[in-house]
């Protein structure tokens, strides 16, 4: 329970609008296959580009696919992608951050300089480079984003770990003769994961946007999987003739990102006040 408690506490203090948006995003993502009214990939070229009707309340896209269903299923694509990226990035980041925070000294110096290098390169450039080398595929995209995101996580983890290690109960544990393995796995790691999880939630918006960006560039999620960034790029040729096709995925993506960003700001403020 230790890692989850700070997260729940933080959520309780968050602005309602953000919590509502994020809950909607997560619920849509989880239940997408059950609530999407149509098969998101079923094409009907005869009605391609048609506006809202009773059967298709948000209209259909340039290939006659139901826009509402695609928006809903895209939430799932995004949610799964964001979770995978955050889990991978934080797994690397927390491991490196806690080792640096626990060992201190030259290990800390070395690891943190590597992190500095990682943070100095913009995340999109890192992702583009990784995809350029490894090729375009779903898992390469996840890997690329994880490799771009871990340095931030490592830095926060190290700060939390150093803070934790300086607490009196850690000193007491050492005096009592607790083994380094026990200190690290039972006391340091869970505390760090808990604190970093809060930051991870705040980061989700940026990751969702990065996934959409890569898909927009054709380097992320491949057709026919519905994805907001890809829906945007598909609809761009119709920007003037049928703006609805661009506005809907754009608006959905914006809402999700704003939701997470409000959350992020709230996290930062809460942390600031608690110090």
């Amino acid at each position: 329970m230790q890692p989850v408690r700070p997260l729940l506490k933080a959520i309780g203090a968050f602005p309602r609008s953000a919590v509502f948006t994020i809950c909607a995003f997560v619920l849509l993502g989880l239940l997408a296959p059950y609530i999407a009214p149509h098969d998101p990939n079923a094409q009907d070229l005869l009605v391609a580009g048609q506006g809202p009707t009773l059967a298709h309340p948000f209209g259909v896209d340039h290939l006659g696919r139901d826009t509402l269903s695609r928006l809903i299923v895209a939430a799932r694509t995004s949610l799964v992608g964001v979770c995978l990226v955050l889990v991978c990035a934080h797994a690397i980041g927390i491991a490196i951050g806690t080792i640096a925070g626990y060992r201190r000294g030259w290990t800390d110096e070395l690891l943190m300089r590597i992190v500095d290098v990682g943070q100095a390169i913009p995340s999109l450039i890192v992702s583009l480079a990784v995809i350029g080398i490894a090729g375009v595929s779903y898992w390469n995209m996840i890997l690329a984003l994880a490799l771009a995101w871990w340095p931030g996580s490592a830095r926060i983890s190290r700060a939390v770990a150093v803070n934790t290690m300086n607490k009196p109960h850690m000193e007491a544990l050492r005096v009592l003769g607790a083994s380094p393995v026990r200190i690290y796995f039972v006391h340091l790691l869970p505390t760090t994961i808990g604190a970093v999880l809060v930051y991870a939630t705040a980061d989700a918006g940026a990751v969702a946007l990065a996934i959409a960006t890569l898909s927009f560039l054709g380097l992320g999620i491949q057709p026919p999987t519905p994805e907001w960034g890809q829906m945007l790029v598909d609809a761009l040729p119709y920007l003037e003739s049928d703006p609805r096709q661009v506005i809907l995925p754009g608006l959905t993506l914006t809402l999700a990102v704003i939701g997470f960003n409000i959350l992020g700001e709230a996290v930062a403020l809460t942390e600031f006040r608690s110090r």
Binding site: N41, Q43, H62, L63, V136, G218, L219, P223, P224, D234
Partner: peptide, 25 residues
Amino acid sequence: SRSVAEVIQSELQEIGVTLTIRSVD
């Protein structure tokens, strides 16, 4: 060509052929 590919993907699915689209620069 990407839209053409998506249409062909969906059409071939109906005859039991799975088509994966790989976008490249």
